[in-house]
């Protein structure tokens, strides 16, 4: 464990909690892409199946359980409890255009052609593009609630910190996972224009609105 990975995990946890609280407190999931949240629930489900097969640390197990519970709670709130506030007309990204290439890539490029390993690889590739429906929805509506931008900021920050974690682990532990690093780079690059808008607008107290 190193400071980048710990702050990365805490940033990820903060993002997940911010979103859950936003929906729960405002009793509304306006502006939130339910499709992205389903993809994140799928990412956690396929990646954390090893909860039952291998114990790494109490921290690892506890965080995985929290992530999975929050992910499914968020999906439930969007498609169940507060379905009336779900903006399906703007959440129209074709997720099959993500799932099919990700499945093919996971089967073709992985560390080992074993079920658990292919599922892990699938979850790594899927996570790198899972935010696209959300970013697409914001580009369609042309704006996002400020709390939603904070959610996206911490979500993007977490994988950016993981990039530094991998540099640290390569240098100090000789650990290197090309699949995770490449997917993490793609994931972080997808946030770049959002980071720019967040820093130049939201942090100056303005509302995030894309040039319509």
């Amino acid at each position: 464990m190193n400071i980048f990975r710990l702050t990365g995990d805490l940033s990820h946890l903060a993002a997940i909690i911010i979103l859950l609280l936003k929906i729960w407190k405002t009793r509304s999931c306006a502006g939130i892409s339910g499709k992205s949240q389903i993809l994140f629930a799928l990412v956690f489900t396929t990646r954390y199946l090893d909860l039952f097969s291998s114990f790494i640390s109490l921290y690892n197990t506890v965080m995985k359980v929290i992530y999975i519970m929050c992910a499914y709670a968020t999906v439930y709130l969007i498609y169940g409890k507060f379905k009336a506030t779900y903006d399906g007309n703007h959440d129209t990204f074709r997720v099959e255009f993500l799932l099919i290439p990700v499945v093919l890539l996971a089967v073709l490029i992985n560390h080992a052609f074993a079920p658990m390993e292919i599922l892990w690889t699938f979850s790594i590739y899927l996570e790198s593009v899972a935010i696209l429906p959300q970013l697409f929805m914001i580009s369609k509506t042309g704006e996002a609630e400020t709390i939603t931008t904070h959610y996206l900021f911490f979500l993007g920050l977490y994988r950016t910190l993981y990039l530094f974690n991998w540099i640290w682990r390569f240098y100090f532990e000789g650990f290197f996972d090309l699949i995770a690093v490449v997917a993490g780079l793609v994931q972080t690059i997808l946030y770049c224009d959002f980071f720019y808008l967040y820093i130049t607008k939201v942090l100056k107290g303005k509302k995030l609105s894309l040039p319509a």
């Binding site: 090893d50 995985k64 560390h111 080992a112 074993a114 650990f175 290197f176």
Partner: peptide, 10 residues
């Protein structure tokens, strides 16, 4: 350095 398939990260 090839990554092992024991994934210890979240």
């Amino acid at each position: 350095i090839i990554a092992r398939t024991q994934h210890d990260e979240l």
